[in-house]
Amino acid sequence: MVRGTPDESWASSPAIRRAMQGNRSRNTTPEMALRRALHAKGLRYRVCAYPLPDLRRKIDIVFRPARVAVEVHGCFWHGCPQHHRRPSANSQYWREKLARNMNRDRQTRQQLEQAGWLLITVWEHENVEHAVDRIADAVQARRA
Rank of each mutant, 00 (worst) to 15 (best):
M1K: 14
M1S: 15
V2I: 15
R3C: 13
T5E: 15
D7P: 07
E8Y: 15
W10V: 14
W10S: 13
W10C: 12
A11L: 12
S13H: 15
P14K: 11
P14S: 12
I16C: 09
R18F: 09
R18T: 11
R18V: 10
Q21Y: 12
Q21C: 14
Q21L: 15
G22V: 07
N23M: 11
N23I: 08
R24N: 11
R26F: 14
R26I: 11
N27P: 06
T29Q: 10
P30R: 03
A33S: 10
L34M: 05
L34C: 01
R35V: 00
R36L: 08
R36W: 11
R36I: 06
A37D: 03
L38R: 01
A40H: 11
A40N: 10
A40P: 07
K41G: 08
G42I: 05
R44N: 03
R44M: 02
Y45I: 00
Y45M: 01
R46T: 01
R46C: 01
C48R: 13
P51G: 02
P51A: 02
L52I: 08
L52C: 06
L52V: 08
L55K: 01
L55R: 02
L55H: 01
L55G: 02
R56E: 12
R57T: 12
R57N: 12
K58H: 15
K58P: 06
V62C: 11
F63N: 00
F63H: 00
R64S: 02
A66P: 05
A66R: 02
A66F: 04
R67P: 03
R67Y: 08
R67M: 13
R67I: 08
V68F: 01
V70F: 01
V70D: 00
E71Y: 05
E71C: 08
H73V: 06
H73P: 04
C75A: 07
C75E: 03
F76Y: 06
W77F: 10
H78G: 03
G79F: 05
C80N: 04
C80V: 09
P81W: 10
P81T: 11
H84Q: 11
R85I: 14
R85L: 14
R86I: 07
R86V: 10
A89R: 13
N90I: 04
N90E: 07
S91P: 14
Q92K: 15
Q92D: 15
Y93N: 10
W94A: 03
W94I: 06
W94V: 05
R95E: 15
L98M: 09
L98Y: 03
L98V: 10
R104N: 13
R104G: 09
R104L: 10
D105N: 12
D105A: 05
D105F: 02
Q107F: 08
R109F: 04
R109K: 06
Q111T: 13
E113K: 04
Q114P: 05
G116Y: 08
G116H: 10
W117H: 01
L118S: 04
I120M: 09
V122T: 01
E124W: 06
E126D: 11
E126I: 07
N127C: 11
N127Q: 09
V128G: 03
E129D: 14
A131F: 02
A131T: 03
V132E: 00
D133V: 09
R134T: 01
I135A: 00
I135H: 00
A138M: 12
V139P: 01
V139D: 00
Q140L: 14
A141Y: 09
R143V: 11
R143P: 02
